[in-house]
Amino acid sequence: MNFEHWKRIVIKVGSALIAPTNTGCSSEYLLSIANFIKQCRSSGIQVVLVSSGSIAAGAHLFSPNKDSKNTDNIIIKKAMAAAGQAEMMATWDTLFDFPTAQVLLTHADLRKRDRYESIRDTIDTLLEHDILPIVNENDAVTTDKLKVGDNDNLSAMVATAAHADTLVICSDIEGLFTKNPHLHQDAKLVSDVYQIDEDIYAMAGGATSSVGTGGMKTKIEAAEKAISHGIDTYIVNGFKKQTFQAMLAGDNPGTHFFSDKNPMHDGVHWMRHTTRALGELIVGDQYKIGHNEASDLLVADDLLSVNGDFSSGDVVLLRKHNGDKLAKVKTNYSSCLLNFVADSTNQDFSEELDKTQDPIISKQYIALMES
């Protein structure tokens, strides 16, 4: 490990570490993590903490018999998150002798470029003033449409936004195993991963924690996002203090996903791994994205149909009629207008659209799919 070369790291801590018994926050497993963060800061390494656990921390404050017989009720969960977030922040504050800051996000904050850059500016400013940013998804207000869903992937998005060089994801096992170690005694720890492919995903099973939302698969997804941005990623056991002692000594106690030697450009990475396509533009099977002027990328005659309901400036998927995905692109027109353009009976209007200064898709906002 290159502990001495770290400059800015993101460490993700899950619900099972924050509130292992669903009876409120516990410092049992957090002390060693807090000490690790202190040691990093004292060594000149900037740290961003992504902390799950607001729902798990607040669950004990709500009586199922009083409020709802179904504790999975989304409204109750939002209330649990609102109450638990305060308890979780207070718990972290007691473990540090330096200031912390709460940063609550939804996916809407990440997929809009100006808000994404605003997140980066806020984190940069906090770190410049030696304040520890503690990031969590805003579960109290988020909806299915707006949520990231798990803090493994959120931590990777935060790491890319913050231009971190290292991401540490704390799990309840040592890292990625060749098989589920809870079911197979011959499972072996995979210490080094240089490329994430189907074989790596095949090793990932479901969630092993009763209070978390992410399993090993979401951690692999997060690692894939991070390494493609040039961020070394580690999955480690957050329940063992030896884990953090080993990392400080320069040893790898878990699985190290090595960063890509040729990371994606920041804008392309944001398009591919952070934005969410809100619709589709369907083109003919012979269509190829142009490489000349922006207007050559997609003209009205190329457009066969439009799927979804989106506005000008939204990100959509550009795909062929046969299903092949070509790219994520930013559209300069709404689905309503493009449906009108795709209608072959509106030929005169389509020709006029191609003459305008604004092309259908923006050349500077294109993330080609790998294959």
Rank of each mutant, 00 (worst) to 15 (best):
T233I: 05
K288M: 11
I200K: 08
K241F: 07
G254L: 12
A222R: 04
V283I: 04
L298Q: 11
H229P: 00
K240S: 11
F244I: 02
N237A: 08
E293H: 15
M247K: 06
M247C: 08
D285G: 07
H291V: 12
H256E: 04
L248W: 03
P263F: 00
T275A: 08
G212D: 08
G250R: 01
V236R: 03
M203K: 10
P253D: 07
G279Y: 05
A249D: 08
Q242H: 11
Y234E: 05
G215V: 12
A249W: 00
S210F: 01
Q242L: 10
Y287I: 08
L297Y: 11
L281Q: 06
G212S: 15
A202G: 07
V299R: 12
Y201A: 05
F239M: 14
V236H: 02
H273M: 10
Y287V: 09
A300C: 15
H256F: 13
E221W: 00
G205V: 01
A222F: 02
K241W: 09
A207D: 09
G290P: 05
Y234S: 06
F258A: 13
T243Y: 04
G254M: 14
N262I: 12
G215I: 10
P253I: 10
F257R: 13
R272F: 06
R272I: 06
T275I: 06
G214C: 01
T218C: 05
D266N: 13
T243K: 02
V236L: 02
Y234N: 11
G267L: 15
E224D: 13
N262L: 12
G238Q: 09
F244Y: 07
P253T: 07
L298V: 07
D285F: 06
L297Q: 14
G238H: 11
A277N: 14
N262T: 15
N262A: 13
G290K: 11
G215T: 11
V211A: 03
G230E: 00
S295R: 15
G206I: 07
I220E: 02
T275K: 09
L248P: 04
Y234M: 12
A223K: 09
G254Q: 13
I200S: 01
I220P: 06
G215E: 09
F258S: 10
R272K: 15
I235Q: 03
D266M: 13
H256K: 15
L278V: 12
E221F: 02
G206N: 14
V211S: 12
L278T: 13
D260H: 12
E221R: 10
M271H: 02
I231A: 01
H273D: 11
D266I: 13
N292T: 12
G238V: 11
F244C: 01
I235T: 09
I282R: 13
T213E: 12
K219C: 05
I200V: 15
G254H: 12
P263D: 00
F239E: 14
A249Q: 04
H269E: 00
S210M: 08
